[in-house]
Design a protein around this nucleic acid. Structure first.
Lengths: 218, 218
DNA sequence: TACTGCATAAGACTATAGTCTGAGGTTACT
DNA sequence: AGTAACCTCAGACTATAGTCTTATGCAGTA
């Protein structure tokens, strides 16, 4: 079966490196490259059954774990592996807690990267060996902002709608994009507002931007 | 005459230091302290004839020169002095270009801070001695993003309205806050949209947040 | 003086947003 | 089988947003 992989990283060189690594594993994989969260959103919205999303956590577009949180909400079944220049246990911990399937430090050599990707392709998780990770304790989330807590109560579909609002789309455009009626979009929006304690899409955008900012810890 | 001074800094200790410095100069000054851009906005909106705004450029709220740009647009007559932990010529240059009346490095000792504040109270500007500043060249702005360029075409009033939108306020609330009719608010908003090439307040919020992000260079 | 930019405003109108009610369907879990 | 959570949708309605037109007043300036 042909693997579908999305690489979201704004460094062309590293994107190429990741691409090489994937090619070694799966020669005929369909690899899509993007350099911003915005583009990544478009791909995820348009493609089904993506086998892997390699997500850099410090893209110029909108750094942070926001992407991970949002995509995991909207596409819980798509495996996401975080790619990062740093290796701090705190970041890895958060990646785990936010539902990532793995973590690849940019310092890792090709063989490690291949091993990680292979592991995730097989449906398992892959984490680097780092001091301080063991004392993790899966109970409760760490460094979770209030916004993140509220956001995490959204259902996958609500999350998608929310992200579309944050891109500045009209209800009509969201409806078209998701191929459901505008009426349903409104239903979702009303539910979203109640969960997030807000009352307008304008405030939703502010909420989204705060979320991006507060989850940034690269 | 009683001086009105606003200190916007999220480090309580440094806020206290600045307060001390001002007290030495003007014992009966009215000093208002805030720790975020949001609070600063409220004060500027509510108070007239402020003699000095001391503005930290890296507040947790929303770092960057966004505050300077916005406030200079909205209140061109209020002298603003930038306070910063760093002393890079680039930052000082930008402070000058964005219309600040002075720059105080946090490393400066009390006597220097007092000198700076005094100078600005007298209506002049005060800049630290830093290498590389002389080759400034007042012609043209440096490191100006496209958003900043567009934003700088807004008139003071339009800028105020824009900031209110970015806070998530309704037209009705903006009208009340600025004490003008909602009809006028709408007129301004239509003008703002044309200047910024956008078509909804939702996009305006996105624009504002990008502005904050792009002007951040602390 | 005439012109320009700016701020103010009302009125009429169209478009979007948002709420509420009620309803049908799926999936998963008890 | 029942229940709970989720996704879907329509219709009716109210509220907000946004455009366009027209108009007044003010300040600066050629």
């Amino acid at each position: 079966m042909v693997k579908k992989v999305v690489i979201a990283d704004d460094h062309p060189l590293f994107r190429a490196a990741l691409k090489q690594a994937i090619r070694k594993i799966s020669t005929n994989a369909k690899i899509m490259e993007v350099s911003s969260l915005g583009e990544a959103s478009d791909i995820l919205a348009g493609e089904d059954n993506i086998n892997l999303l390699l997500l850099d956590i410090h893209m110029s577009d909108s750094d942070g774990f926001a992407g991970l949180i949002m995509y995991k909400q909207a596409y819980p079944l798509t495996p996401i592996v975080i790619v990062s220049a740093s290796e701090e246990p705190e970041i890895i911990r958060n990646a785990i807690e936010f539902g990532a399937s793995g973590f690849i430090p940019k310092s890792a050599d090709l063989s490690v990267i291949r091993e990680a990707i292979n592991t995730v392709f097989e449906g398992q998780s892959w984490w680097p060996e780092v001091d301080g990770l063991s004392k993790l304790g899966r109970n409760g989330r760490i460094g979770f902002s209030e916004s993140s807590k509220l956001f995490s109560t959204l259902t996958p579909t609500q999350s998608k709608v929310f992200m579309a609002i944050a891109e500045g789309l009209l209800n009509k455009q969201i409806a078209f994009k998701m191929d459901i009626s505008e009426s349903t979009i409104k239903t979702h929006i009303t539910a979203i507002f109640k969960k997030l304690n807000i009352s307008s899409r304008t405030q939703a955008v502010i909420f989204a931007k705060d979320l991006e900012k507060n989850t940034k810890q690269d």
